[in-house]
Nucleic acid binder design. Structure first.
Length: 362
DNA sequence: AACAAGGCCAACCGCAGCAAA
DNA sequence: TTTTGCTGCGGTTGGCCTTGT
């Protein structure tokens, strides 16, 4: 396989941090042309970057639907739950946390959650020592790191999960070390509780205007900008967040087994539309980004970001007349739908708690 | 104030899977 | 069937930032 590097005939390719100018180029290109072949995008956008780098930058940082900001407790709970089931399949976990990227979750896990769990493990080694500073998610789950008495080195975790109404103790692989997801998935089997999942992420309505309103964000960003992009030029997240379509799900034999909540990745249409309100106040993409921590709106109430669609995919479109408008450049989109923070995390967690518990076959 | 240590996070790397030629 | 190119994923790294001394 010819790697992208060698393909460039020694033409220098930038590495490292992206400059605001590069960001701007990429954003402009993505907005106007939409997604395509990433190596073409890199070239055509005038970036001295490999396509891969552009893709990564877009997916992890520039995508308009990114939530960013600190993880909420609910999200944390969700991550822990999902990780207990999916292991290190960050992309799949991310697919269930709209607005979050696999990288973000991975970093979060490695830097924060893992540490906390470890900490908790230590603290629980002395029975009376409970760490009240521990987030609810950890406390509530009464996470007790297994002392790995079995032959499994992955760190089996026993979770006394009060969400789980069916049993007092469920044993989960937390896959604390290395990439043991395959191990965990191969060693777990479904429990016996029939489950019917409501789909927490699929509250999508079509309001008869080829205009999908998504009550929640999606991890995979799909959407063309109304009227301004050639038809079919939607930019979507590739298969980001969409890995678990039915086919691949079956292929993996995991999702279907575990009856994980379905993903909204099935929503794939060029008709999925992002409409952006355009009351431009900022003058540049940089403004736009700095306004809101790179498109982040984190449940803010003043809707500072033009791409303020983390929480929903539909923004008002008032006189979106040119690229600047289209772009937003710091416009103040009016959010009409549910915000990220308004998701029914309770319900979601409830649902998640109905994941079949995992028994370990030692 | 200066330095060191540790944490966080953006980005890179290598691999696997897939599709098209 | 093989080769080639692209994409996506998970693991890892390196630099910046924060905190402690």
């Amino acid at each position: 396989m010819v790697k992208e590097k060698s393909k460039n005939n020694g033409s220098k390719q930038r590495k490292g941090l992206w400059s605001p100018e590069e960001d701007e180029k990429l954003i402009r290109y993505m907005i106007t042309k939409g997604e395509g072949c990433w190596s073409d995008i890199a070239r055509n956008a005038g970036l001295e970057r490999c396509g891969k780098s552009c893709r990564l930058r877009w997916i992890n940082y520039l995508r308009p639907d990114l939530k960013r900001g600190a993880f909420s407790l609910q999200e944390e709970d969700l991550i822990i739950h999902l990780h207990s089931i999916l292991g290190n399949r960050w992309s799949q976990i991310a697919a269930r946390l709209p607005g979050r990227t696999d990288n973000e979750i991975k970093n979060f896990w490695n830097s924060t959650v893992k540490k906390r769990l470890k900490l908790n493990n230590n603290s629980t080694s002395s029975p009376n020592n409970t760490d009240s500073s521990e987030p609810n998610s950890i406390r509530d789950n009464n996470v007790v790191m297994g002392t790995t008495t079995s032959s499994n080195n992955n760190g089996i975790m026993h979770i006394n999960d009060h969400h789980h109404h069916h049993q007092d103790l469920m044993t989960m692989s937390m896959c604390m070390d290395n990439s043991s997801s395959s191990t965990s998935s191969s060693t777990m089997h479904t429990h016996h509780h029939a489950m019917v999942f409501g789909d927490p992420f699929s509250m999508v309505t079509n309001n008869n205007n080829n205009h999908y309103e998504m009550a929640t964000g999606v991890a995979g960003f799909h959407g063309a900008i109304a009227g301004d992009l050639p038809l079919g030029n939607s930019f979507h997240g590739g298969d980001y967040g969409g890995m678990l379509d039915e086919e691949s799900t079956d292929k993996m034999g995991l999702e279907s087994d575990l009856s994980l909540p379905p993903l909204e990745s099935s929503i794939r249409s060029t008709e999925e539309i992002i409409i952006i309100n355009s009351n431009n106040n900022a003058s540049s993409i940089d403004d736009m980004k700095s306004h809101n921590n790179h498109f982040n709106n984190n449940n803010n109430t003043n809707n500072d970001s033009c791409f303020n669609n983390t929480d929903n995919q539909v923004l008002n479109n008032n006189n979106c007349s040119n690229e600047e408008d289209l772009f937003g450049f710091g416009n103040h989109g009016q959010v009409e739908n549910l915000r990220m923070g308004e998701w029914d995390f309770e319900g979601l967690m409830q649902d998640i708690s109905y994941f079949p518990s995992l028994d370990f076959q030692v």
